[in-house]
Amino acid sequence: MIAVLTGDLVDSTAMPAKDYQCAVNIMNDYLAKCQTRFAAKGEIYRGDSIQLIFKQPQHAMRAAIELRSLLFSTDATQAPLGITLSVGLGEQLIDGNKPSVSQGSAFTLSGRGLDSTPSGHISLHHEGGAFYDALVLATQFLDNVLYSHTQKQARVLFHYLSMNFPTHTQLANALSTSQQNVTKHLARIGADLIKAYVVFFEEKLNKESD
């Protein structure tokens, strides 16, 4: 089993050219980091869409949350950047160097899932059984929490995940703020529950992919 993460920028055609370029740059930079951190393969296509293949599927949802938070938290654009994201769990029948030349159920599930995902939200799609149905439901709760975050909260969450759940002091140093401020933000974004979801997702899918 692999995971495919597919995403489309929200209202990209209506963005000022500067904001659009900023969004593309963020996606390109994050794609490169995923290639190093998770050994993922990916590309940007159609100008405003991104797709990543995770041979280790447990990393896909962390990447989805990070990418959404990273785009939304930027203060370099006139308005917050949104992205619609779909994770598909399935097989890869044709293994290409890029998603565009690869095929399999994971790609179909991710692509079709993106079409049915509300704008700016995250969804999970699979071809498994009852366990994955429960994981889809948990992901819907996660998405509801993420969608309520402010830009400042999204920035804190991105660093919290990308630093792999650091201490409040470590996170405060990374964000150049106080520990008290970090603790307040983490409590308000439901960081403990988000961490529990990510850890559960990664542990269970790691076993499934062995």
Rank of each mutant, 00 (worst) to 15 (best):
V4Q: 05
V4N: 05
L5F: 11
L5A: 05
L5H: 08
D8K: 02
L9T: 07
V10K: 00
S12P: 03
T13Q: 14
A14Q: 14
P16G: 03
A17N: 11
A17K: 04
Y20E: 09
A23K: 01
A23P: 06
N25M: 11
I26W: 00
I26D: 00
M27W: 03
Y30C: 02
L31F: 10
L31N: 08
A32Q: 15
K33E: 14
C34V: 09
C34K: 08
T36M: 09
F38I: 09
F38S: 08
F38D: 12
I44G: 06
D48G: 07
S49K: 07
I53M: 14
I53P: 08
Q56M: 12
P57I: 12
Q58D: 09
A60Y: 01
A63L: 07
E66M: 11
R68A: 06
S69A: 10
L71M: 07
L71E: 07
F72D: 01
Q78D: 10
Q78I: 04
L81Y: 00
G82Y: 04
T84A: 03
L85I: 13
G88A: 08
L89M: 09
G90F: 03
G90M: 06
Q92M: 15
N97A: 11
V101F: 08
S102G: 10
S102L: 10
G104Y: 08
S105P: 00
S105M: 13
A106P: 15
F107K: 04
L109N: 04
S110M: 03
S110F: 05
G111W: 02
G113P: 02
D115V: 03
D115K: 10
S116T: 08
T117C: 06
T117R: 00
S123C: 05
L124V: 13
H125L: 10
A130W: 09
F131R: 10
L135E: 07
V136Y: 04
N144Q: 09
N144R: 12
L146Y: 03
Y147K: 12
S148Q: 13
Q151L: 02
Q151F: 01
L161K: 05
S162I: 04
M163Y: 13
N164M: 12
F165E: 14
P166K: 15
L171F: 14
A174M: 13
S176Y: 12
S176R: 09
T177C: 14
Q180G: 15
K184V: 15
L186Q: 15
G190S: 09
L193W: 10
I194N: 01
K195C: 10
Y197W: 02
Y197D: 00
F201R: 05
E202P: 01
E203T: 02
E203P: 00
K204H: 07
K207R: 05
E208R: 14
S209F: 05
D210V: 10
